[in-house]
Amino acid sequence: MGVTRAELEAGIEEHHAASLGWALSCCGWDRGEAEDVLQSSYLKVLDGRARFGGRSSFRTWLFGVIRRTAAEHRRRAALRWLWLPLTGADGAALHDPAPDAARVLERSEESTRLVDALRVLPRRQREVLHLVFYEELTIRETAAVLGVTVGSARQHYERGKRRLRELLDPEACR
């Protein structure tokens, strides 16, 4: 028996705040791009292009959809960037990687430092740390979202944690 549209909408609504945080992480904290990704992900879920099979929790599955959609957006952005010299279009109009000034002001200095440090980490490590610390998922759930083994997720977690600590507190690590 499938999940009804009303149930899907209720699930999306329930996890919306967490989903936006995860989309932000997947998009390098670019809010505009994260909202685009989230919009595409919700549409995929609601029009049936992404089907919930019930093999994991709804949140784990939804995060997987958001992650794949963000990867698609990145690929499309890369293709657009390749086309720019041929079309003569303005690259800045298509993608502005600069953070939204209002959003930067809203974040505390400590959070801004954390976001900057996360941007330096390899993607996989950043994703694991975000899912474990920000979304409070277990390593097993994190592995399910990323489609990797639990051992691999644990390894990324340990390495990422060590690297993040070095970036945030270099004095303490000496």
């Binding site: 974040r107 505390s108 400590e110 976001v115 740390l129």
Partner: peptide, 14 residues
């Protein structure tokens, strides 16, 4: 420490 930092970021974003 990391948990506290991420929690603050989460609160600010939300």
């Amino acid at each position: 420490d990391l948990g506290a930092r991420f929690a603050r970021l989460r609160e600010e974003e939300r």
